Simulated scan of single mutants.
Amino acid sequence: MSAATTDQQADQPAGPELKVTERGRVLVMTMDRPASRNAMSLQMAQEIADALDLLDSRDDLSVGVITGANQTFCAGMDLKGFARGERPVIEGRGFAGLVQKPPTKPLIAAVEGYALAGGFEIVLSCDLVVASTAAKFGLPEVKRGLTAAAGGLLRLQRRIPYHLAMELVLTGAMWPATAAAEVHLVNRLAEPGSALEVALQLADEIAANAPLALAASKQVLVRSQDWELEEMFERQHEFVNPIRTSADAKEGALAFVEKRDPVWTGR
C-alpha cells in the first residue's frame, strides 16, 4: 500500500461509534467500538451527547436506553486515546457526553459483560439499570493510580450503602450484577444476552405513560435530594405545575372517562 493511499484513508471520516435507533417512543443508543470493548472515545462521547439532545428535543420520544454491542457494556475511558492526550469529555455534559448532565427524560442502562470505570459511571448516571446475571461492575481506577472522577465517587454512595460503596472504591474489586441487584442498584436481572430485550420491555412500560409527567417526575426525584424540608413542596412547583395545564393532562383525564388508551403528544 502506498503512502498516498494511507494518507487518503486517514483523511476519510471515521464511521459512527454509536448506533442510534428508534423503537416507538424509545431511543436506543448502542456503543459500538468492539475492538476496544466499547471503551469511551471523544468521538463516541460527542455522539452520545448528540443523541441525548435528540432524546430531550423530540416530543415523540419518552425514554432512552443505552447499551453496548458485542456482549459488553463499556470498559471505561479509552486509555490509548488518553495516552495521546484525548479526553472523552464534552463541555457541559462531562465524560461520555452524559455523566455531568444526564437527559431530562428517563434513561435506562442495559448491561451485558463489563461496565468498568467510566463504564460503571455511565450506569450510575442512568435512572434505571437492567443487567445480565453474568454482568460485572467495578471502579478499578485506584489500581491505575487514578480516581473515579466521572461521578463514581459522587453517585455510588447515594445508590448503595456507604460502607459497601467505600469498599468497592478502595479495593477496585469486580462486583457481580447479582450482588448489585441484592442492594437494588439493578432494577431487573436478565439472562445473559437478553439485557437489552428486558430493558426495552421496561422502557415500553414507562413510555406508555405521559412523557411530560415522566420528565417532570424524574427531575423532582433527582433534584429534591438536597432540598430543605421547609422549601421542598414549594420548589417542586416549578416542575409539576406546568404538567397540570398540559394537553397531555387533559388527554389523560379524557381517555380515562372514555375508557380508552391515551394518545400522548408530549405537550
Rank of each mutant, 00 (worst) to 15 (best):
S2M: 08
D53E: 09
L156R: 01
E112K: 02
Y114G: 04
G118R: 11
C74E: 07
L27F: 12
P211L: 01
Q43I: 10
A255E: 14
R33M: 10
R235G: 06
D248G: 02
L221S: 08
M29F: 12
L185Y: 08
Q46G: 11
I90D: 04
V142N: 14
A165Y: 04
A213S: 07
L116H: 06
A14M: 08
D60E: 12
E191Y: 08
A117R: 02
T133P: 00
A35V: 14
V169P: 01
M166T: 06
A148P: 09
E238M: 00
P211T: 00
S62L: 08
A4Y: 08
V28K: 03
R58S: 14
I48W: 10
A51M: 09
L154G: 05
F239I: 01
I206T: 00
S217F: 03
L200Q: 11
G64T: 05
A110L: 08
P106R: 01
L146E: 10
H237F: 10
P176S: 00
S36Y: 08
V183H: 09
K259L: 14
L116P: 00
T245F: 10
A149P: 04
N209K: 03
A148D: 03
F82K: 13
A179K: 09
K143R: 14
L124Y: 00
A215S: 14
P88Y: 10
A117N: 09
K136A: 15
K80N: 13
Q9M: 10
V28C: 03
D56E: 09
A109F: 11
A208E: 13
N241K: 01
A45C: 09
R25G: 05
A134C: 12
P34V: 14
L61W: 10
G94T: 03
T21R: 15
S217Q: 01
H163N: 04
E182F: 06
V111T: 03
A216L: 04
L168K: 06
S2P: 15
E91R: 09
A134I: 04
S57D: 15
F120R: 00
L55T: 12
A148S: 13
A69E: 13
V20R: 15
A255P: 09
E22Q: 14
Y114D: 14
A210R: 00
G266M: 05
K80D: 14
A10Q: 14
S36F: 06
P102M: 06
T265M: 05
A51P: 03
T133N: 08
Q219S: 12
R84C: 10
A115F: 10
